[in-house]
Nucleic acid binder design. Structure first.
Length: 193
DNA sequence: CAAGAGATCATCT
DNA sequence: GATGATCTCTTGA
């Protein structure tokens, strides 16, 4: 049911693709929140100029250098949090950004946090998703094999997926055009096309 | 609809 | 002191 650590130890691109269609589960005092993962991006290691770890091991990127299967949560633009899953071997800094989910359970609480009634607007973007799921830096470094935040394995077959360039990484030189963004082909809940 | 600006702060130079 | 793995609102057609 719960994806094991071994899942996250695979190559980052594999993890990013295979996460699609699985269920993000957040245990929260006000009720469990569940969403079907429909969009991800891979940040593949120290050479990837779009990856924060390309600038070395710092306080912020420390978690990415740790073992796979932990959450990397950071704060950006003064407003938003981003949720990532650490992948691959220890000391190899890579992660998958969770960009969008389809709300499945705990929808009322998500609407309240997002101050929106539109189902499609609750978690169709990395910042929105963190707001809807009450994810902030207090979850940075948390073990995805624990009982606060984890991914439940889908029961059905893998969805059809498409790839595209990553968003918001124009500064990343030749890495900016890599097709490291993956999303469920027919989902209405992705952040863009 | 598309494009642009503004919001606001942790992190690194 | 600059900037960013974003979102929302406003503007102008």
């Amino acid at each position: 049911m719960k994806l094991p650590r071994g899942f996250y130890e695979q190559s980052t691109v594999e993890v990013a693709k295979q996460l699609l269609g699985n269920y993000l589960v957040r245990r929260h005092p006000d009720g469990d929140l569940i969403g079907r993962i429909v969009e991800t991006e891979a940040y593949v290691g120290p050479h990837d100029l779009a990856c924060h770890a390309a600038r070395g091991r710092t306080k912020r990127t420390e978690v990415m250098f740790g073992p796979a299967g932990h959450a990397y949560v950071y704060f950006i633009y003064g407003f938003y949090h981003m949720l990532n899953f650490v992948t691959e071997a220890e000391d190899y800094p890579a992660a998958v950004l969770i960009r969008a989910v389809e709300p499945i359970d705990g929808v009322a609480a998500m609407k309240k946090r997002r101050r929106s009634d539109s189902l499609r607007d609750l978690a169709s973007g990395p910042g929105k998703l963190c707001q809807a799921f009450a994810i902030d830096r207090s979850l940075n470094g948390i073990d995805l094999c624990g009982d606060t935040l984890w991914v439940a394995e889908r029961g059905e077959a893998a969805p059809k997926i498409k790839s595209a360039k990553r968003v918001g990484v124009d500064y990343a030189g030749r890495w900016k055009d890599k097709r490291y963004r993956f999303f469920v082909r027919d989902s209405a809940f992705v952040s863009r096309g």
